[in-house]
């Protein structure tokens, strides 16, 4: 990525140059420490993959590696559950909630950042308070509400609920981000006859992209991994999200650890792929200055 950033035409952002960073041995030490930490961060997931590949008979062996890797576990896990269907639901819910959050939060954040209006503080407070309520505490009320509306087992319900619980962070981060973009640029556009909404879309939005991307990733990941609402608001295996589907490997008398972890690994992969696309932009946005 360093090369990718270097290849970029010019990076005129503030150049952050921590002092004395050309000192070689120091770089080496930093690299070693960083690589060690990276390994530490990945280790638990590596162990999950190893467990996923264990033959059933060696599941409870306290060894580092099994005698052989059972790659068929990854195929079995698809046959033994509705993973494909669950994955589709999760994709739909995470994608839908992310879009909804952006559609709803962006205008609100924009207006709040740009305008002084009565109730602005109350609005921001309301948003902050939402962040403090966890769905876990509200499950019965949520179930009751969506039952009365006849919306149980619906993808839309999961999209709406997940979006609502992620709004707070998105509004926060977008308000802050847009607030840091000089308003003069849009005003110039508005003098030229563009509406405020048009100015927001054409001028501010592109500049606020890193903020938008951050809010997007945050919402997507949180929704992707959401469990409690998925468990409560859906009961039909075909409309359950992945996290709930995985939970079904925990049964009355046994836990299918190898399948559980195989499915978990499958669940992580799409998020990592999303990161491969988007996180690069975040990182480059974040580091544009230092990697000249």
């Amino acid at each position: 990525m360093a090369t990718a950033a270097a290849a970029r035409p010019k990076t005129t952002g503030p150049s952050v140059k921590p002092p004395k960073r050309t000192f070689r041995p120091r770089t080496l030490v930093i690299a070693v420490v960083a690589w060690g930490l990276a390994a530490l961060f990945l280790a638990p997931y590596l162990e999950m993959i190893i467990t996923a590949l264990r033959p059933k008979s060696e599941l409870r062996d306290r060894t580092y590696l099994p005698s052989s890797f059972e790659w068929s576990n990854f195929i079995e896990v698809w046959k033994q559950s509705e993973l494909g269907q669950n994955l589709q639901v999760t994709l739909l819910v995470a994608g839908g909630a992310t879009l909804l959050v952006l559609l709803v939060a962006l205008p609100a954040a924009y207006y709040t950042a740009r305008m002084k209006f009565r109730g602005r503080k109350i609005f921001l407070l309301l948003v902050l308070v939402t962040q403090m309520f966890q769905p876990t505490a509200l499950l019965i009320g949520l179930y009751r509400e969506f039952y009365q509306l006849g919306m149980l087992n619906s993808v839309w319900t999961l999209i709406i609920t997940n979006a609502a619980f992620n709004l707070a962070f998105a509004v926060w981060i977008l308000t802050a981000y847009i607030g840091s973009i000089p308003a003069e640029l849009e005003e110039a556009a508005m003098v030229d006859g563009t509406s405020r909404f048009g100015a927001m879309i054409k001028v501010t939005l592109p500049l606020a992209l890193p903020g938008v991307v951050t809010a997007l990733i945050f919402t997507f990941i949180t929704t992707w991994n959401e469990f409690a609402m998925g468990l409560t608001l859906t009961t039909d295996p075909a409309s359950q999200p992945l996290t709930v589907g995985i939970n079904n490997f925990i049964g009355a008398y046994t836990v299918q650890w190898n399948y559980l972890f195989a499915a978990s690994v499958v669940a992580i992969v799409p998020v990592i792929i999303l990161f491969a696309f988007i996180e690069r932009h975040v990182v480059s946005g974040l580091t544009a200055g230092s990697v000249k």
Partner: peptide, 24 residues
């Protein structure tokens, strides 16, 4: 493009997504 891809995925999939339970 990534955003659009997600959108397309979402719309494409909604055709086969779960339908309301109608518990009313």
């Amino acid at each position: 493009a990534t955003g659009a891809a997600t959108l397309v995925m979402a719309l494409g999939l909604s055709a086969c997504g779960g339908d309301g339970d109608g518990g009313g």
